[in-house]
Design a protein around this nucleic acid. Sequence first.
DNA 1: TTAATAATAGTTATCGGTAACTTTTATTAG
DNA 2: CTAATAAAAGTTACCGATAACTATTATTAA
Lengths: 344, 344
Amino acid sequence: MLHDIKKDNPSTSLEEVAKKAGVSKMTASRVLRNKTGVSEKTRKKVLKAVEEINYVPNRLAAAFGTGNTSTLVGIAVPTLSRDLFSQILEGIERRLQSVGYQPLIGTTNYSPGSENDWIRTVLSWKPCGVMLLGNDSSPETWQMLQRSNVSVVKVWDTHDIDDDSYSVGFDHYKIGYEMGSYLSNRYNGQFAYVGSRTEGHFLGKNRLRGYEQALLDTKSTEVKPLVTYYLNDRPSFYAGFYGTEQILSKHPDTRVIYYLDDNMAVGGMFYCKSKGIKIPGDIAIAGFGGLSVSSVLTTPLTTTKVPRLKIGQLAAATMLKLVTEQAAAKHCEVETELVKGMTA
Amino acid sequence: MLHDIKKDNPSTSLEEVAKKAGVSKMTASRVLRNKTGVSEKTRKKVLKAVEEINYVPNRLAAAFGTGNTSTLVGIAVPTLSRDLFSQILEGIERRLQSVGYQPLIGTTNYSPGSENDWIRTVLSWKPCGVMLLGNDSSPETWQMLQRSNVSVVKVWDTHDIDDDSYSVGFDHYKIGYEMGSYLSNRYNGQFAYVGSRTEGHFLGKNRLRGYEQALLDTKSTEVKPLVTYYLNDRPSFYAGFYGTEQILSKHPDTRVIYYLDDNMAVGGMFYCKSKGIKIPGDIAIAGFGGLSVSSVLTTPLTTTKVPRLKIGQLAAATMLKLVTEQAAAKHCEVETELVKGMTA
DNA sequence: TTAATAATAGTTATCGGTAACTTTTATTAG
DNA sequence: CTAATAAAAGTTACCGATAACTATTATTAA
């Protein structure tokens, strides 16, 4: 016999609800979507039927049937296990979930190739929008997104963003420059940067560039050209610890170290403490992010505080505006704060 | 005119691929799914057509059309911004993504109500499976999952798991008991626990219970009954800092503190340092998790190290086995390690 | 009371894939 | 060279919801 694609499907359908309630499928559909044109009596009947047979709507069918206008939102993120991103994600997720949108999260490992693959996959689920965290998407990724005409929001770095895309975050170059100026106004001698590189990708590139430029722009003649050290590893406390050891072995005269993020900076602080190096007397240290650890250190960390949850919420808000065809700001910048701690 | 549901749909379809290649839709479908019964010549033609019109398959349609056998996997997680979970998630995510499955992540905020709501939503996307992180799902949630006959894997605590569900993780009660025994063998006097409570939900309940039981079971008569302090806040460095201040103000004779997790323990360490309290001379401190911060502390933290990434990978592996109808172990326990640091 | 109008409810076609079946073409055996 | 068989390709129905239209019933106006 023909047509028995799935006979053991126990799931309920609108059809059954309608039958049970003695109305048409369409009427049941209207009730469930709170559409007008249904009498109170009918509405009650339908809701009762829904209750009775434990109806679970099929969003797959709904999204597909209406020309693929789903409530799925693709979110590409470098990694889930980095505070910087996970809290942005949390903000996005909460906001989307609260209005019934469903995030489809994919990790890219900071690799354009992986990002590309994932975007291709996620587009096949016909999301209404895609959010890109931690920038640096390849031209192919971008082209693919353009063709698919889903809404795209870039989240994190707003430096050098092309004007044809929406973005939420702040200018990392500026943050790096700001910290560079602050540090070069207070210290002289050898400046260093300890960062991290994964899969050939330099994390926080724009902050480093800003920092470097600030050192070049300084009036002080006693600031020596920047030295850098990159770990081939994820940013972590340990990476900061080890990276500090490395940079100091190569450049023992290092006077100031700027780190990729707070966790690495704290790792550096621990290294210095373990070696009896005074902070900031011998070495000044600055981080980035305003991560939670910095709030309880006995020596408060000098860093740039970033409102991560807020970035997430704003990004989600922008996305929601786009998919509901409301006007949204092209570029949304959040305030950051240079926290003058006791380490630099 | 009738039937113009979506005329401005620019997306490509198999139909177009087929037309372009001069074959039937079905043949094109077979090529794209690597099915047998297609000649090499035809396969090339189809792939060329796919390339030419930049075909993006519609997974929505595919999943829906085949009786809702999707490759979506729902994942309920208390929060994204806690190291403990985010690294498990990372493990799950990577594994699923690598075989073309798509995680649908939802946060529950440790609230059974939110979890319930989210499960209802996610089920409407007809996932092939659902993973529950951080246990404590309500009976309603469980019932809903049962009815939907998706595969379910519980991840995190395997203590007291009913035998009708799959689980991956370890026994938190046992971990608490183990730490309690270790500590009560080494210290006497006032034992304390500093934890956290969100939305009326006590985090890490089973570890506390195990810890408490170990103290009751100790041979020492000099161990005083446990005192506890809970913050109405997420676990964090700051929560540990503040919680320590609180417990010490109420119980100045506290000799040992066990914390909900390492971050809180480190917060506690910083508090003690800031007050000149010697660790472990005046107060002994133990954490849980083996979080990254503990690896760089000048005073290594006594804690229980948990292979989070591995838990995630195993959980994903279990799920993949279930949905492909292979045999999977009902309960999968990972090894944990009590790290004897210098804080207790 | 009847005609005009508004509010409800019902019908039909459709989205884009795929399972199951049928038909055509190629290959091998006798 | 034909018959039996295997491989390749094509047909059709269907999944479950909804947009757009039509039909019915209730309400109001004249």
